[in-house]
Deep mutational scan, measured.
Amino acid sequence: RSRTNFTLEQLNELERLFDETHYPDAFMREELSQRLGLSEARVQVWFQNRRAKCRK
């Protein structure tokens, strides 16, 4: 699998939701992934990586 390149719109939406909650539930992830045209797994990994970045 190659690296996912997020569009600016996708990143803005992901960051907006991250500001609301660092741990979106499965329903939120599924709804977001459909809206952004990403797989739920990519959304989940993005949040994992974003939380790690936040801890640094």
Rank of each mutant, 00 (worst) to 15 (best):
P24A: 02
A41V: 13
N49M: 04
T21N: 14
T7C: 05
Q10N: 04
P24K: 01
Y23N: 12
E20W: 03
A26R: 14
R1T: 04
R1C: 11
E13C: 07
G37S: 12
R1M: 09
A52E: 12
D25A: 10
W46E: 01
S2V: 09
L32H: 00
E15N: 12
R51F: 07
R3W: 06
V45E: 15
E31Y: 00
V43L: 10
E9F: 09
Y23H: 15
R50W: 04
F18K: 01
A41D: 13
N49F: 04
E40Q: 12
E40W: 06
L14R: 00
E9Y: 05
E9S: 07
A41C: 10
Q48D: 13
E15K: 04
R3D: 15
Q48C: 08
H22A: 12
A26H: 08
T4K: 11
W46D: 07
N12I: 07
F27N: 14
K53C: 08
E13Y: 04
R35G: 04
P24S: 02
P24C: 02
F27A: 15
K56C: 15
L32G: 02
C54Y: 13
L36Q: 06
Q44E: 14
A52F: 03
R29M: 11
Q10M: 02
S39E: 11
N49C: 10
N49H: 06
N5Y: 05
N5W: 07
C54R: 06
R35H: 02
A26N: 13
F27D: 14
R42P: 00
P24R: 00
E15G: 03
T21S: 08
A41R: 13
C54S: 13
E9D: 08
V45P: 01
E30C: 08
Q48L: 05
E20K: 15
W46S: 01
E40L: 09
F27G: 14
Q44F: 09
R29K: 09
A26W: 10
E13Q: 05
N5D: 14
T7M: 05
V45G: 10
D19Y: 03
A41I: 05
D25F: 01
R51N: 02
V43G: 01
E15M: 03
T7R: 03
M28N: 03
R51T: 06
Q34F: 03
N12Y: 05
T4E: 15
R29T: 10
V45S: 10
R55H: 11
E15Q: 04
V45C: 08
S39K: 10
P24M: 01
R3K: 15
F47K: 00
K56Y: 05
N49W: 05
Q44N: 11
M28Q: 13
E31P: 00
G37Q: 08
F27L: 15
H22D: 10
N12C: 09
E15I: 03
V43D: 00
T21H: 11
L32E: 04
Q10L: 00
E40F: 03
L17M: 09
V45K: 10
A52G: 08
L32M: 11
G37H: 05
R35M: 04
E40H: 14
E13S: 09
L17F: 15
V43R: 00
R55M: 15
E40V: 10
V43E: 02
R51Q: 03
H22R: 09
Q48H: 15
E31G: 09
D25H: 03
R55A: 14
E31M: 07
S2C: 00
K56D: 07
L38A: 14
R55W: 11
Y23A: 07
L11I: 11
C54G: 12
R3C: 11
R55V: 08
S33H: 12
L14Y: 00
S33N: 04
R16P: 02
R35T: 04
K56G: 15
N12L: 09
D19L: 12
K56Q: 12
Q34W: 03
P24E: 01
E9P: 07
T7Q: 07
S33C: 14
Y23F: 14
L32P: 00
E13A: 13
V43Y: 00
E20R: 14
Q34C: 04
E13T: 04
Q44P: 01
E13F: 05
R51V: 08
F6G: 01
T21R: 06
L14S: 00
A26M: 11
E31W: 05
N5P: 11
S39I: 03
E31C: 07
F6V: 05
G37V: 02
W46I: 02
N12T: 14
L17I: 10
R42N: 14
F27Q: 13
D25E: 06
R51W: 01
E20A: 12
A26S: 15
C54M: 08
Y23V: 06
K53V: 12
R1A: 14
R35C: 04
E20S: 09
S33T: 06
G37K: 10
A52H: 05
K56V: 11
N49V: 05
L14A: 00
Q34S: 06
L17S: 07
E30Y: 15
Y23L: 08
T7I: 03
L36R: 00
L32N: 01
R35V: 05
W46T: 01
R16C: 05
R35S: 06
C54T: 07
G37I: 01
V45D: 14
W46A: 00
R50Y: 00
L14D: 01
R42I: 12
T21D: 12
F47G: 04
S2Q: 12
S33G: 13
R55I: 07
S33M: 07
E13N: 04
F47D: 00
R3N: 15
E13I: 05
R3P: 13
E13W: 04
E9R: 09
R16K: 15
F18V: 01
R1L: 07
A26E: 12
K53I: 15
T7G: 02
T4W: 08
R3S: 15
L36C: 13
E40N: 06
T4A: 07
W46P: 04
V45L: 10
P24D: 01
G37P: 00
L36T: 11
L32C: 07
R55G: 13
E20Q: 14
D25T: 11
C54L: 14
L17K: 14
R35D: 03
A41P: 08
D19R: 15
D25W: 00
A26K: 14
F18E: 03
E30R: 13
D19K: 10
R16A: 12
F47Q: 02
F6A: 04
R29Y: 08
R42T: 14
E9G: 07
E9K: 07
N49T: 15
F27E: 14
K53S: 14
R16I: 05
R51G: 02
N49K: 12
R42S: 15
R35F: 03
E40P: 10
V43M: 05
T21K: 06
A52K: 10
V45M: 11
F6T: 03
R42Q: 14
L14V: 00
A41Y: 01
N5G: 08
F27T: 14
R35Q: 14
R16M: 04
R51D: 03
K56S: 12
K53Q: 14
E30P: 00
L14I: 01
R50C: 02
G37Y: 02
F27I: 12
A41G: 10
S2Y: 08
N12K: 13
P24W: 01
E15W: 00
A52Q: 10
R35P: 03
H22W: 10
E15V: 00
A26I: 10
R42G: 10
S2I: 10
Y23I: 04
D19G: 14
V43F: 02
L14E: 01
F6C: 05
F18I: 02
L36H: 04
D25I: 02
Q48S: 08
R1G: 10
E13P: 00
Q44C: 10
M28E: 08
T7L: 03
A26D: 09
E30V: 06
L11C: 05
A52C: 11
T7K: 02
